[in-house]
């Protein structure tokens, strides 16, 4: 990343679940030639933001969450910054057992599984307080280097 010619979308969202649908429209408009990537990234954003708002912030609607998308030819990078207590969703939630039958199937745990499935790289840091989640997804037509 960091090349000139990259396009950037930066948004500050109120910490309310109702704000996520509006974000999805902005992301779709930011990636007009990549509808499938837009859908997948929107699902990831929805799952992570829902976790932050419902659990990290305990439903408090008076915080803000910064979302930044940067797109190069080969990659899309997404950064989500919040001021909730430090939490790493990828370290603390194991993968769900997708083969469990209906009766035993636990409710929950799927959102993080979707994020892991749909992006190539996930990272979490807590520098300066809060949480900073970074997702990177390779765009179609660009094979991995090496």
């Amino acid at each position: 990343m960091g090349n000139t010619g990259n396009t950037i979308l930066e948004l500050r969202l109120p910490s309310r679940l109702e704000a996520i649908a509006g974000l999805a429209e902005e992301v779709t408009a930011f990636l007009p030639d990549q509808p499938r990537v837009a859908f997948e990234i929107n699902l990831c954003l929805d799952e992570l933001l829902t976790n932050t708002i419902s659990h990290g912030l305990g439903g408090a609607g008076d915080h803000f969450i910064d979302v930044r998308l940067e797109r190069s030819d080969a990659w899309l990078e997404v950064v989500i910054k919040d001021d909730a207590p430090a939490f790493d969703p990828f370290a603390e939630v194991g993968p769900p057992d997708l083969d469990t039958d209906l009766e035993q199937r636990p409710i929950g745990g799927l959102g993080v599984h979707f994020v892991r499935t749909l992006v190539d790289v996930v990272g979490v840091s807590h520098e300066g307080g809060g949480n900073r989640v970074t997702l990177r997804k390779r765009l179609a037509g660009h094979a991995p280097a090496g």
Partner: peptide, 16 residues
């Protein structure tokens, strides 16, 4: 047009 894990949770509850 769209479903997230929060929607799947409701479908799973209904199936149970």
């Amino acid at each position: 047009g769209y479903v997230s894990s929060a929607g799947l949770r409701v479908v799973l509850m209904a199936a149970k």
